[in-house]
Design a protein around this nucleic acid. Structure first.
Length: 613
DNA sequence: TTTAGGG
DNA sequence: CCCTAAA
């Protein structure tokens, strides 16, 4: 049985005793600010880490010039570092010097198991600045909501000239880490646009973003990278997608990812390490680049929730508010994988967890001054979001439970590691579940299992009433929300299958075409039916057609009152039954090549001969 | 890869 | 629609 509690990396990182000490200059800053501004403290540590990461990255780039910089060079460095720590693990706090000479402290703990906490996914530097019409507030009409808002991620977003930040903070038995979404989310209007805009599926082949976004390549040859947000998917196809499409008559790139398809590319770097208990553990470290904007305000927003973002004010332009969301923090994900797990398996595991999380629906939250704005009716200006306000107070969050606030007790068991690597994952989520206390016993968790536990936690500082009651705060942290633990399954599903295809009801026209084709070809040649009548319908596979025929036959067999969905003309249903009967009688015979192109079939004559409808 | 069926 | 055993 494993219990997880929400532990915000931000606050945790500096509130717990076993935290490595940062350089003096940084510590001072932390001390001075930690009380009222953890972000600053974070910032400090982050900067250091970023610096180190940047160094490492640079080195990796120069030496390998590949996207695997972190797997090689960097990884080794981390390995050394870990080793060093091991030798001196009696000292809870320790400052180390990286190979690059930067003196930084890498949060490490001996008392760790194989768990890891994914605090957030970060989007790369935002290229997708979206503009939206300003609220026509009576008094603000003249000025409108002006100014560009650069929404930065939460605490994890630190300025780093090095371009990268390695953020690692272990907590108790887990490792907190940040994961970065390879693609920005475009915001337009009140909602995230998807799938056109919310494209978190850049399973691309690009190896880097900008000039130093190195990505770790997983075992499946997948490279994750950032891509610009466009209103429609381009012709670009990732290997993975091509693979999928290939087996389904695909000819275009119209892969339907659904709204929250989460083939999330993860950019992360981690190292292995062992716990003092002898369990294999690993540490996952995220590296992300950041871009400093001259007039960027300091992070103010910190909801400690699923996600958050800070905002910085940019030069004014027009009467609109432009938001550039750099990242969203997602519910924490607890991961536990064996040390022998591969990077690829880890990625798949995290991705799957995210997919599961997203499949449950997500919603966006807006924070102003750290306070959650729940009234969707209010205008931005009324909410305090305007050019006249400090836009750095604006933040966004991603929360699970788009529609149903219930937990997402999904448990995917997946041989994430195709090989024999015993890896499985389980997702727990208490989210806004009022029954968060119904912690399911998950005593089946095995050591070599991997566990992902998404959380929903939000520090509704000023609004302890609304959602908090549905929470089951834990002793340690008030804002913590208990989670429902779901037993691990033995056989997780493939990541690609985490999200089923969107439902696409057949139109009458399609049914007509299908019936026509079946009348001519029979019911055992779906590939031919596909080719003949749905050649260009990439989303209709022969299996789909076969299934549709199946349902059509059923539909035709039941009373009209029992039918649902768009009504199919009785005429067509009659033909369905006739063809069904006919082909049932003539199976082997015409199944072969020369399908009965009986011109009379449609009139029923040819079918009359041995068809009992 | 397709078919054929159960889920 | 998904998942798969079979062919």
């Amino acid at each position: 049985m494993v219990f997880k509690r929400k532990l915000d990396c931000v606050s945790v990182a500096f509130d717990y005793p076993n935290i490595p000490r940062a350089p003096r200059s940084c510590r001072r800053k932390v001390q001075n600010k930690r009380t009222d501004d953890n972000d600053d403290a974070q910032m400090c540590a982050m900067d250091l880490l970023a610096s180190l990461a940047g160094k490492i990255l640079e080195e990796g780039q120069s030496s390998s010039a590949s996207s695997n910089a972190f797997e090689g060079n960097a990884h080794e460095n981390f390995g050394k570092e870990v080793k060093t720590e091991r030798e001196d693990h009696d000292k809870p706090l320790k400052s180390e010097s990286s190979d690059q000479g930067n003196s930084v402290s890498m949060p490490t703990y001996e008392n760790t198991s194989d768990k890891c906490v994914v605090n957030s996914f970060l989007f790369p530097d935002n290229d997708g600045i979206l503009e939206r019409t300003p609220p026509m507030s009576d008094h603000k009409k003249i000025h409108g909501e002006t100014g560009d808002v650069n929404v930065n991620p939460g605490f994890e977003q630190r300025e780093a000239t090095g371009g990268l930040t390695a953020n690692t903070c272990n907590l108790e038995d887990k490792t907190a880490l940040d994961v970065q979404f390879p693609k920005p989310v475009c915001v337009d209007g009140d909602d995230l646009k998807s799938p056109s805009c919310v494209n978190m599926i850049p399973n691309g082949s690009l190896a880097r973003h900008g000039n130093h976004t190195n990505l770790v390549r997983d075992d499946d040859e997948k490279l994750y990278s950032s891509r610009k947000c466009s209103n429609k998917f381009t012709s670009y196809k990732s290997p993975a997608i091509r693979r999928i499409r290939k087996s389904k008559y695909s000819k275009q790139v119209s892969k339907d990812f659904g709204h929250y398809r989460a083939d999330v590319g993860i950019k992360a770097l981690y190292r292995k390490r062992k716990s003092c208990y002898g369990y294999n553990t690993w540490k996952h470290e995220t590296i992300y680049k950041r871009r400093r904007s001259p007039d960027r305000s300091s992070v103010v927003t910190s909801d400690g929730g699923l996600s958050n973002g800070s905002v910085s004010k940019l030069p004014e332009k027009r009467k609109s508010v432009k938001l550039s969301i750099k990242s969203f923090r997602i519910p924490e994900l607890f991961i536990e994988v064996p040390e022998t797990a591969t990077v690829g398996s880890l990625k798949r595991t995290v991705m799957e967890a995210v997919s599961v999380l997203l499949s449950g629906g997500i919603r966006v939250g807006v924070l102003v001054h750290g306070k959650k704005v729940r009234d969707d009716k209010r205008t931005l200006s009324q909410t305090g979001i305007s050019s006249e306000e400090n836009l750095s107070n604006l933040g966004f969050t991603l929360e699970p439970g788009g529609t149903s606030n219930g937990p997402i007790p999904l448990c995917s068991k997946d041989p994430v590691v195709p090989t024999t690597e015993p890896t499985s994952l389980c997702e727990r989520s208490a989210a806004a579940s009022p029954n968060a206390d119904d912690v399911i016993n998950s005593g089946s968790i095995v050591d070599n299992k991997l566990e992902l536990v998404p959380y929903q936690s939000e520090i509704s500082v000023d609004e302890p009433s609304s959602d908090s009651r549905a929470l089951v705060p834990l002793p340690a942290l008030e804002e913590v929300k208990a989670l429902a633990i779901v037993p691990l399954n033995q056989k997780p599903k493939r990541t690609e299958l985490a999200q089923r295809r969107a439902r696409r009801p057949f139109s009458v026209t399609e049914v007509e075409a299908l019936v026509q084709a079946v009348e001519e070809l029979g019911t055992g040649r779906w590939r031919d039916v596909k080719l003949r009548a749905f050649e260009n319908a990439d989303h209709r596979t022969y299996v789909d057609l076969k299934d549709k025929w199946k349902t059509l036959v059923h539909t035709a067999s039941i009373s009209p009152q029992q039918r649902r969905g768009e009504p199919v003309p009785q005429e067509l249903l009659d033909r369905v039954l006739k063809a069904y009967g006919y082909w049932s009688q003539h199976q082997g015979k015409h199944q072969a090549r020369g399908a009965p192109k009986d011109p009379d079939m449609n009139r029923g004559r040819a079918l009359d001969s041995g068809v009992s409808v």
